[in-house]
């Protein structure tokens, strides 16, 4: 069964289809949430809520308007950002610096995080920092091109091409 059929069955409230989609995306989506909230337990909690939301809003996904992955990614980012903006989170994370997810590598050992440090290292090796940053902003944090350009202090026109070459590098690493 291909992805399109799976999604169609999921939209018809087929729990088995949903289970397979969950298997395909859940781990990744939880990871994206974690890059935003920086708290394993919290990320897991939000991630679970996100998939409940995905199930309950299944009929609102329209394949012609974007990838299924992109749709879930959007829901996840919004949920995580909502959490970050909440007061309780702000209070607990007041002193957290705004560093990037590769920072998780450094903290990983000390916080006994379940982050796949080896896998991450393999993926991001020889990936320049500016690549990691642009990928994180565009995919994990939901920045627009303009917002990312301002954040990284580069012209808007270069975001698109830089992102392309960074993703290309990532794909190369993935095949290793």
């Amino acid at each position: 069964m291909n992805l399109d059929q799976l999604i169609k069955r999921f939209q018809n409230k087929d729990v088995t289809a949903f289970e397979r989609l969950h298997g395909m995306y859940a781990e990744n989506i939880c990871g994206v949430i974690n890059t935003i909230v920086r708290n394993d337990a919290l990320a897991q909690e939000i991630c679970q809520d996100v998939f409940i939301k995905v199930w309950n809003n299944a009929e609102s996904y329209n394949p012609s308007k974007g990838r299924f992955f992109t749709w879930i990614l959007n829901i996840a980012r919004n949920a995580a950002i909502d959490q970050v903006r909440s007061k309780s989170y702000k209070n607990s994370k007041k002193n957290l610096s705004a560093d990037y997810f590769v920072g998780i590598l450094d903290h990983g050992s000390s916080t006994e995080s379940k982050v796949d440090a080896i896998g991450l290292k393999k993926l991001v090796k020889n990936l320049k920092e500016k690549c990691i940053r642009v990928i994180e902003l565009l995919y994990f944090k939901g920045y627009t091109q303009k917002e990312a350009a301002e954040e990284l202090d580069i012209p808007v026109g270069t975001i698109k091409t830089r992102n392309r070459s960074c993703i290309a590098q990532l794909r190369k690493n993935l095949k290793l």
């Binding site: 859940a26 781990e27 990744n28 974690n34 896998g119 993926l123």
Partner: peptide, 20 residues
Amino acid sequence: AVLALGKTISPGLPHNFEVI
């Protein structure tokens, strides 16, 4: 590629589908 990158920073996904 994006999926793979996200996976490496996932907190291990303790919730299996049964919870959902």
